[in-house]
């Protein structure tokens, strides 16, 4: 049996290394699950309520919004609460991946500069952590549905492929942002100010269908990828087919993200340890 020879040499630009890294990282599932569970435990260590804070902070937000903003919408109160519950859960997950992506390699710098792990290990860890929070939020959302007497319809299964696609996109987004912010620290601040705007330009607090008339708000929200990401996931759960236009938007965006990840990763992979 001849064991493989490892050759490490100069790669000025090598997009293939991104694919190798993604596959190698995925194989280390025990490692990134262990890291993710450690981080979740650390975050809530020494707090009395611990993990219950995930449920609480979600409930506080949904309750507040449905009481204060419910009157601005044409939907009745129950329907609006359900609408906010599902949209806020997926919105937090997606937004969390953007903000975590900015720091994904920075917070792992001690590991990156001491153990030659695939870079994607750190990305998977980060996503696993936000997936855990998302799962809890979805369980609470389903409980709210039940209490309000809302039943899922058959069309709800369409949310599953939508979520899987968004999960894959999260990997690319974190990779792109992780490398770019490692090199250009200013980008992280820029992203932070953009995410604040995303909260208002995405139909989480307001209902997209009520603002179809041409206007500033509708134009901005149509250009906002988050609007379409929410549409393909939430619409089936709320009992209707998602807008095909939104599916196309997200599909094109996924391809674009994949290509950008290859280019950015192909250039940055070798240089990351120098930048941190």
């Amino acid at each position: 049996m001849t064991r493989p020879v490892r050759i490490s040499t100069t790669d000025r630009f090598n997009p293939m290394i991104v694919l190798t890294d993604l596959v190698d990282g995925a194989k280390r599932v025990h490692l990134w699950l262990a890291f993710a569970s450690d981080e979740i435990q650390n975050r809530y260590r020494r707090s009395k309520l611990g993990l219950a804070w995930i449920v609480l902070s979600y409930l506080i937000f949904v309750a507040t919004i449905s009481i204060f903003f419910g009157t601005f919408s044409d939907l009745d109160h129950n329907r609006f609460t359900i609408y906010v519950a599902i949209n806020f859960a997926i919105f937090t997950f997606l937004l969390g991946n953007i903000t975590d992506g900015c720091a994904v390699f920075r917070v792992a710098r001690t590991w990156i500069s001491s153990v030659p792990l695939p870079h994607s290990t750190h990305i998977y860890k980060s996503i696993a952590r936000s997936l855990f929070v998302f799962t809890i939020n979805m369980i609470v959302a389903m409980t709210i549905f039940f209490l309000y007497g809302y039943k899922l319809e058959l069309v709800a299964w369409e949310a599953i492929p939508a979520f899987l696609l968004l999960l894959v996109d999260a990997v690319f987004v974190q990779m792109i942002l992780g490398y770019i912010t490692a090199r250009f620290r200013d980008i992280e601040h820029l992203i932070q100010s953009i995410t604040r705007i995303l909260f208002f330009t995405t139909p989480v607090l307001w209902v997209r269908d009520e603002h179809v008339s041409r206007g500033m708000r509708s134009t901005v929200s149509e250009l906002n990828p988050m609007t379409h990401a929410l549409e393909i996931f939430s619409a089936p759960i709320l009992g209707r087919h998602a807008d095909p236009h939104s599916w196309m938007f997200i599909l094109y965006m996924s391809v674009a993200l994949f290509v950008i990840a290859l280019v950015v990763g192909g250039y940055s992979h070798r240089r990351l340890p120098y930048w941190l």
């Binding site: 064991r3 490892r6 050759i7 490490s8 100069t10 500069s113 030659p116 070798r270 120098y274």
Partner: peptide
């Protein structure tokens, strides 16, 4: 150790 890759030359290893 494979933590940083060389900008010139090659490093070859088995094990």
């Amino acid at each position: 150790a494979g933590i940083i890759s060389p900008s010139e030359g090659r490093l070859i290893s088995r094990g």
